[in-house]
Nucleic acid binder design. Structure first.
Length: 724
DNA sequence: CGAAAGGCTCTTTTT
DNA sequence: GAGCCTTTCG
């Protein structure tokens, strides 16, 4: 098979440029995944590079799986030695192998968000603060921001400039101590620790640098600083780094992804070859045009000319339903209609939305009409209480110092060890600076002088739990994973316990489902299967479970939809407050990201796109009138099939009560501005107003900023501050 | 000790 | 509307 044959000139250029750094800027549907796959295949087949010397990073495990499939076909053989996976999965592997030198226990467990939050609450308390006063989520986010910039607690404390930052620094410090004590890492640690490992151990870094002759990174626009640094470190020796991305599809800034990575790449690798992929193979002309009109409003963007040879296609359908129930009903009916007249199959259709909560009304409608659907939320399964309980037992077997897991299940099923006794134990453990499990061991030693003040009955219960755990730990040395899991279920009496809970049957089904997942690991040696399984279930991403072969409509968030494509796409909730989300209202940059999100959604569609909204929507208990998303207004009418409803929108915008105004943070008072006024902008700095005029129901100022030039800014969005 | 009920807050996107 | 926490009662 000729690997270059089926590529267009630009794609071919991107594949053949194997020497030195390459930046591929690729529009939606321009075949970037294809370019990566072909490039790897080209390296292996044509250039004779061993797969062992190639590392390719994808955004999800699913993308990695698909890449493997594609490659196996392209090179007609196995690519087993290839390093392929998400940053997190790859880093976890590196740390298990080489983490010892920075005191990462190879038996570490990975904490998910829920575990992280529990540990954080504990850390907040332990530094003498009240978790109610310092929202653990806000602190979690601040710590994550720090880690994505590779800042240690000490760095944070040193540079803290406010009381909150100091609090973050102190909590962060304790949080890391507790993680270390329990041999646990959070998601961000996986990345940051590898960077630190490489920094402190040049010989280990050299090993990886020498091994990886070629580095490839997909979805580069959504990488953050640690990830950039990792790529830089690993690729430093050969500099054969190929990154692929699209600034217009950058939608993860809240995870500290930084678009500036693309600019840094051009700066750090001045010799980089830059390839533009602008031909779209996915969508009809009209879909592409709709999308372009939406995205071109963004100010912070390099204009890009996307084009396609595909047919003109259908008009964009804009629909207004009365309520969210009717919105869902419209989608279901329309799917049935399309499937009925043979225009599409169930699997061709996807419904996309901004927030997970929106899936509910949709699910109900699909269920009521008996239309098969699949909800993309793989991680949701692993968040279920019963599933997490079992995983906690398994984690405890792998690493008994994992106190979060221990506290989760020490009394599940009930063993008569209550909250009071547990805080006694925890306090005692903390005083001795040991994990709970070690404290448990000591507390149940009858000959010990200094015992925690516990009731003998409780001590007996604790000893029983300890004995159970020790036996399971021993069992892990000779049983395979499923045998071990069965042994957990049997020894704990979990089945009887869960069946007595509300929805017991369903929950037990979930446990059995988990057991099915575990079966994939039975071939591994005792112990190893457990490690691999625990890593697998923690690093799953939502789309990983998406199975294209199932004939059902896909319900998916806009974020999850990145990288996917469907012949028919419905985007629901096209309303102010939802898309764009109201959290972004007072920040021009975030607003641009909302727009990109909308763009990502539209460009998933191959043949048909529906933009749907509800006139009434209930949120937070309240029902409110909505107004159409501003993004709808950017689509020229010649591209829209006017469902009659759309025509009357203009007057509605004026009349509609802006339901979100009540929730929205107090409107930034827009200053009266005239030409010559000096203003300050959070991003552009100080500038001078050139002009200011009324537009629709807003005012638009044209301001010149030094270093940025002229900017058009809507006063309701841009946080302009008048300065004297 | 444990279950149940009531009250509170916060509502985005996820590896 | 949900999840989390606290309170209350058996």
């Amino acid at each position: 098979m000729d690997i270059l044959a089926e590529l267009n000139p630009a794609q071919r250029e991107a594949v053949e440029a194997i020497q030195g750094p390459v930046l591929i800027l690729a529009g939606p549907g321009s075949g970037k995944t294809r370019v990566i796959a072909h490039r790897v295949a080209y390296l292996i087949k044509v250039c004779g590079v061993s797969p062992y010397r190639i590392i390719a990073v994808t955004f999800t495990n699913k993308a990695a799986r698909e890449m493997t499939d594609r490659l196996t076909r392209l090179v007609s053989g196995s690519v087993g030695d290839l390093t392929l996976g998400t940053f997190h999965a790859i880093c976890a592997r590196i740390l298990r192998r080489d983490g010892r030198s920075i005191s990462v226990d190879p038996k570490f467990v990975i904490y998910d968000d829920e575990d992280q939050l529990s540990l954080l609450k504990r850390s907040i308390q332990e530094v003498g603060l009240d978790p109610k006063q310092y929202a653990p989520r806000a602190i979690a986010s601040a710590i994550s921001a720090a880690k994505s910039r590779m800042l240690t607690p000490q760095d944070c404390l040193k540079r803290s400039r406010s009381y909150f930052e100091e609090v973050v620094g102190r909590v962060y410090e304790r949080y890391q101590q507790l993680l270390a004590e329990g041999s646990a890492l959070d998601f961000d640690d996986l990345l940051m620790k590898v960077v630190l490992l490489f920094r402190n151990n040049p010989e280990i870094l050299a090993k990886y640098q020498t091994r990886y002759q070629h580095v490839l990174v997909d979805e580069f626009q959504d990488t953050n600083l640690v990830q950039y640094e990792l790529v830089r470190q690993i690729g430093a020796k050969y500099r054969n780094i190929c990154v692929v991305g699209d600034p217009d599809q950058s939608i993860y800034s809240w995870r500290f992804a930084d678009l500036r990575n693309i600019l840094s790449f051009e700066k750090d690798y001045p010799e980089a070859k830059i390839v533009f992929l602008e031909q779209n193979y996915r969508s009809t002309q009209r879909i592409l045009e709709t999308a372009s009109n939406v995205i071109s409003v963004n100010q912070q963007r390099k204009p890009k000319e996307l084009w396609t040879d595909n047919e003109e296609g259908e008009l964009t359908t804009v629909v207004e339903a009365y309520t969210e129930m009717e919105e869902a009903q419209f989608v279901v009916n329309e799917v049935e209609r399309l499937v009925g007249n043979g225009e599409a199959s169930l699997g061709d259709c996807a419904v996309m939305y901004r927030t997970n909560a929106q899936s509910r009304a949709l699910e109900e409608a699909f269920m009521r009409y008996g239309v098969p659907y699949k909800l993309v939320a793989g991680t949701r399964f692993y968040e279920r209480r019963e599933v997490k309980d079992i995983i906690a037992y398994l984690r405890l077997i792998q690493n008994p110092n994992d106190s979060i897991s221990l506290l989760r299940i020490i009394n599940v099923p009930q063993r008569g060890i209550g909250q009071r006794s547990l805080s006694e134990l925890s306090g005692w453990a903390r005083a001795k600076n040991i994990p709970e499990y070690q404290a448990l061991k000591m507390a149940t030693e009858p000959e010990l002088e200094e015992l925690p003040p516990l009731n003998p009955r409780i001590v007996r219960a604790m000893a029983g739990f300890l004995k159970l755990t020790e036996e399971l730990i021993a069992a892990n040395k000779k049983l395979n994973l499923v045998e071990l899991l069965d042994s957990v279920l049997e020894r704990t009496g979990y089945k009887e316990y869960v069946l007595n809970q509300p929805n017991g049957e369903e929950r037990w089904e979930n446990v059995l489902e988990l057991r099915t997942v575990a079966q994939d690991y039975t071939d591994l040696k005792p112990g190893e299967g457990l490690t691999a399984f625990l890593e697998g279930v923690t690093l799953v991403s939502d789309v990983d479970g998406l199975d294209e072969s199932v004939a059902a409509v896909t319900l998916i968030t806009l974020h999850q939809a990145k990288g996917l494509e469907f012949p028919v796409v419905f985007i629901v909730g096209m309303e102010e407050g939802l898309l764009p989300h109201f959290k972004s209202f007072d920040d021009a940059e975030q607003m641009e990201e909302e727009r990109r999100l909308c763009y990502v959604g539209i460009t998933r569609a191959k043949r048909r796109i529906y933009l749907v909204r509800a006139f009434h929507r209930s949120l937070m208990g309240r029902t409110g009138t909505t107004i159409p998303s501003r993004f709808l207004a950017d689509i020229p009418s010649h591209l829209v099939s006017s469902g009659g409803l759309w025509a009357g929108e203009e007057s509605q915008i004026a009349e509609a009560i802006y339901a979100w105004d009540k929730i929205r943070s107090p409107a930034v008072t827009t200053p009266e501005l005239k030409a010559g006024d000096h203003v300050r902008h959070p991003q552009f700095g100080d500038g001078v107003v050139v002009n200011c005029q009324e537009v629709k129901d807003d005012r638009e100022a044209i301001v010149v900023f030094s270093g940025w030039g002229l900017k058009k800014l809507l006063l309701s969005l841009a946080r302009l501050e008048k300065i004297e």
